[in-house]
Protein backbone atom coordinates (compact mmCIF):
# COMPACT_ATOMS: atom_id res chain seq x y z
CA UNK A 1 0.00 0.00 0.00
CA UNK A 2 1.50 3.37 -0.92
CA UNK A 3 2.37 5.50 2.08
CA UNK A 4 1.31 9.12 2.36
CA UNK A 5 4.95 10.02 1.86
CA UNK A 6 5.16 8.13 -1.44
CA UNK A 7 1.89 9.60 -2.70
CA UNK A 8 3.08 13.11 -1.93
CA UNK A 9 6.45 12.48 -3.54
CA UNK A 10 4.70 11.25 -6.68
CA UNK A 11 2.37 14.22 -6.71
CA UNK A 12 5.30 16.57 -6.30
CA UNK A 13 7.16 14.79 -9.06
CA UNK A 14 4.14 14.97 -11.34
CA UNK A 15 3.79 18.65 -10.62
CA UNK A 16 7.47 19.32 -11.19
CA UNK A 17 7.46 17.35 -14.44
CA UNK A 18 4.18 18.55 -15.95
CA UNK A 19 4.72 21.08 -18.73
CA UNK A 20 2.90 24.31 -18.04
CA UNK A 21 1.86 23.27 -14.54
CA UNK A 22 2.58 26.11 -12.15
CA UNK A 23 0.47 25.30 -9.11
CA UNK A 24 2.49 23.40 -6.53
CA UNK A 25 0.75 20.63 -4.59
CA UNK A 26 1.48 22.10 -1.19
CA UNK A 27 2.83 25.51 -2.05
CA UNK A 28 3.13 27.12 1.36
CA UNK A 29 6.48 28.71 0.56
CA UNK A 30 6.61 32.43 -0.17
CA UNK A 31 8.65 34.11 -2.87
CA UNK A 32 12.05 35.31 -1.72
CA UNK A 33 12.94 38.73 -3.11
CA UNK A 34 16.44 39.70 -4.21
CA UNK A 35 16.57 42.29 -1.44
CA UNK A 36 15.64 39.75 1.25
CA UNK A 37 18.24 37.33 -0.04
CA UNK A 38 21.02 39.89 -0.39
CA UNK A 39 21.19 40.37 3.40
CA UNK A 40 22.08 36.71 3.96
CA UNK A 41 23.83 35.59 0.77
CA UNK A 42 27.37 35.48 2.19
CA UNK A 43 28.88 32.21 0.99
CA UNK A 44 32.11 32.68 -0.98
CA UNK A 45 33.08 29.95 -3.45
CA UNK A 46 36.53 28.67 -4.48
CA UNK A 47 36.30 30.37 -7.90
CA UNK A 48 35.82 33.73 -6.15
CA UNK A 49 32.08 33.89 -6.75
CA UNK A 50 30.36 36.15 -4.23
CA UNK A 51 33.55 37.80 -2.99
CA UNK A 52 32.55 41.40 -2.16
CA UNK A 53 34.34 44.54 -3.34
CA UNK A 54 37.11 45.74 -1.05
CA UNK A 55 40.80 45.17 -0.41
CA UNK A 56 43.33 44.60 2.34
CA UNK A 57 47.08 44.04 2.70
CA UNK A 58 49.44 42.12 4.98
CA UNK A 59 50.50 45.14 7.05
CA UNK A 60 46.92 46.11 7.86
CA UNK A 61 46.13 42.48 8.56
CA UNK A 62 48.99 42.14 11.04
CA UNK A 63 47.62 45.00 13.14
CA UNK A 64 44.05 43.60 13.15
CA UNK A 65 45.33 40.09 13.87
CA UNK A 66 47.21 41.24 16.97
CA UNK A 67 44.20 43.18 18.16
CA UNK A 68 41.37 40.71 17.40
CA UNK A 69 42.81 37.22 16.77
CA UNK A 70 46.05 36.61 18.68
CA UNK A 71 44.40 36.16 22.09
CA UNK A 72 42.91 32.82 20.94
CA UNK A 73 45.20 31.75 18.08
CA UNK A 74 48.55 32.92 19.50
CA UNK A 75 51.00 35.61 18.38
CA UNK A 76 52.33 33.53 15.48
CA UNK A 77 49.18 31.50 14.80
CA UNK A 78 50.51 28.25 16.21
CA UNK A 79 50.16 28.54 20.00
CA UNK A 80 46.42 28.12 20.40
CA UNK A 81 44.31 27.31 22.26
CA UNK A 82 42.03 27.84 19.23
CA UNK A 83 42.72 26.19 15.87
CA UNK A 84 46.28 26.42 14.63
CA UNK A 85 46.49 28.74 11.61
CA UNK A 86 50.02 28.31 10.29
CA UNK A 87 52.47 25.47 9.83
CA UNK A 88 53.95 23.36 7.11
CA UNK A 89 52.00 20.22 7.86
CA UNK A 90 50.32 21.17 11.06
CA UNK A 91 52.06 18.50 13.08
CA UNK A 92 54.24 19.13 16.05
CA UNK A 93 57.58 17.57 15.31
CA UNK A 94 57.93 13.92 16.19
CA UNK A 95 61.09 14.89 18.10
CA UNK A 96 59.12 17.30 20.28
CA UNK A 97 59.29 15.62 23.73
CA UNK A 98 56.11 17.39 24.82
CA UNK A 99 54.14 16.37 21.72
CA UNK A 100 51.66 14.10 23.44
CA UNK A 101 51.07 16.56 26.23
CA UNK A 102 50.49 19.35 23.73
CA UNK A 103 48.06 17.31 21.68
CA UNK A 104 46.24 16.27 24.81
CA UNK A 105 45.92 19.85 25.94
CA UNK A 106 45.04 21.37 22.58
CA UNK A 107 43.83 18.67 20.16
CA UNK A 108 42.96 21.27 17.54
CA UNK A 109 46.62 22.16 17.23
CA UNK A 110 47.76 18.95 15.60
CA UNK A 111 47.13 20.36 12.14
CA UNK A 112 46.87 23.87 10.76
CA UNK A 113 44.44 25.81 8.61
CA UNK A 114 47.26 26.75 6.24
CA UNK A 115 48.23 23.12 5.69
CA UNK A 116 44.78 21.56 5.54
CA UNK A 117 42.47 23.97 3.70
CA UNK A 118 42.44 23.63 -0.12
CA UNK A 119 41.13 27.11 -1.08
CA UNK A 120 42.12 30.59 0.09
CA UNK A 121 38.57 31.88 -0.52
CA UNK A 122 37.40 29.74 2.44
CA UNK A 123 39.53 31.88 4.77
CA UNK A 124 37.68 35.02 3.71
CA UNK A 125 34.32 33.24 3.94
CA UNK A 126 34.93 31.89 7.42
CA UNK A 127 36.56 34.94 8.98
CA UNK A 128 33.75 37.15 7.71
CA UNK A 129 30.90 34.91 8.93
CA UNK A 130 32.30 33.61 12.20
CA UNK A 131 35.26 35.59 13.51
CA UNK A 132 36.21 36.94 15.99
CA UNK A 133 34.61 34.13 17.96
CA UNK A 134 32.95 36.45 20.49
CA UNK A 135 31.91 39.08 17.91
CA UNK A 136 31.13 37.29 14.65
CA UNK A 137 30.40 39.38 11.52
CA UNK A 138 31.84 42.51 13.18
CA UNK A 139 34.69 43.03 10.69
CA UNK A 140 34.39 45.11 7.51
CA UNK A 141 35.07 43.53 4.13
CA UNK A 142 38.36 45.45 3.94
CA UNK A 143 39.39 44.16 7.38
CA UNK A 144 38.54 40.58 6.35
CA UNK A 145 40.64 40.93 3.17
CA UNK A 146 43.50 42.27 5.33
CA UNK A 147 43.34 39.40 7.85
CA UNK A 148 43.10 36.89 5.01
CA UNK A 149 46.22 38.45 3.47
CA UNK A 150 48.08 38.25 6.78
CA UNK A 151 47.13 34.58 7.34
CA UNK A 152 48.29 33.68 3.82
CA UNK A 153 51.53 35.57 4.46
CA UNK A 154 52.00 33.71 7.77
CA UNK A 155 51.88 30.47 5.78
CA UNK A 156 54.42 31.74 3.27
CA UNK A 157 51.86 31.67 0.45
CA UNK A 158 51.98 35.35 -0.59
CA UNK A 159 54.56 38.17 -0.50
CA UNK A 160 54.50 40.74 2.29
CA UNK A 161 53.62 43.40 -0.30
CA UNK A 162 50.58 41.50 -1.64
CA UNK A 163 47.08 42.99 -1.65
CA UNK A 164 44.02 40.74 -1.48
CA UNK A 165 40.79 41.56 -3.31
CA UNK A 166 38.14 39.94 -5.55
CA UNK A 167 40.70 39.22 -8.27
CA UNK A 168 43.79 38.28 -6.25
CA UNK A 169 42.37 36.00 -3.57
CA UNK A 170 41.01 33.17 -5.76
CA UNK A 171 44.40 32.99 -7.52
CA UNK A 172 46.32 32.07 -4.34
CA UNK A 173 47.25 28.40 -4.46
CA UNK A 174 46.96 26.48 -1.20
CA UNK A 175 49.35 23.50 -0.78
CA UNK A 176 46.54 21.21 0.47
CA UNK A 177 44.72 21.29 -2.89
CA UNK A 178 47.10 18.86 -4.55
CA UNK A 179 46.87 16.52 -1.56
CA UNK A 180 43.07 16.53 -1.53
CA UNK A 181 40.92 13.58 -2.49
CA UNK A 182 37.13 13.40 -2.36
CA UNK A 183 35.34 10.45 -0.80
CA UNK A 184 32.10 11.44 -2.57
CA UNK A 185 30.73 9.76 -4.55
Amino acid sequence: MPTLEKVLALLLLAWAGAAGATEPVIGLGEALTEADLARYDITVFPDGRNLPPGRGNVTEGRVIYRDRCAACHGESGIEGPATRLAGSDGLFGWDDPLRIIRIKKYPLLIWSMGARWPYATSIFDYVRRAMPHTAPKSLSNDQVYAITAYLLYMNGLIEESAVMDQQALPKVKMPALDRSVSAWP
Binding site: D41, T43, V44, F45, P46, T83, L108, W111, M113, R116, W117, P118, Y119, T121, S122, D125, Y126, A130, A176, R179, S180, V181, S182, A183, W184
Partner: peptide, 30 residues
Protein backbone atom coordinates in the same frame (compact mmCIF):
# COMPACT_ATOMS: atom_id res chain seq x y z
CA UNK B 1 21.72 27.33 -1.55
CA UNK B 2 21.70 24.98 -4.53
CA UNK B 3 24.95 25.05 -6.50
CA UNK B 4 27.00 23.14 -9.03
CA UNK B 5 29.94 22.68 -6.66
CA UNK B 6 30.70 22.53 -2.93
CA UNK B 7 31.67 25.73 -1.10
CA UNK B 8 34.63 24.23 0.81
CA UNK B 9 33.43 25.74 4.07
CA UNK B 10 35.63 25.84 7.18
CA UNK B 11 34.59 22.43 8.50
CA UNK B 12 34.82 20.56 5.18
CA UNK B 13 38.20 22.22 4.63
CA UNK B 14 39.76 21.27 7.94
CA UNK B 15 38.28 19.78 11.09
CA UNK B 16 35.98 17.28 9.37
CA UNK B 17 38.52 15.80 6.96
CA UNK B 18 40.77 12.78 7.38
CA UNK B 19 44.45 12.49 6.58
CA UNK B 20 45.11 9.16 4.92
CA UNK B 21 48.20 7.08 5.65
CA UNK B 22 49.87 8.35 2.45
CA UNK B 23 49.35 12.00 3.47
CA UNK B 24 46.42 12.75 1.18
CA UNK B 25 43.54 14.69 2.72
CA UNK B 26 40.20 12.95 2.33
CA UNK B 27 37.17 15.24 2.09
CA UNK B 28 33.41 14.60 1.98
CA UNK B 29 33.51 11.21 3.73
CA UNK B 30 30.01 11.69 5.10
Amino acid sequence: ELTANPAYTKDESGLYTQVLADGRIQRFAF
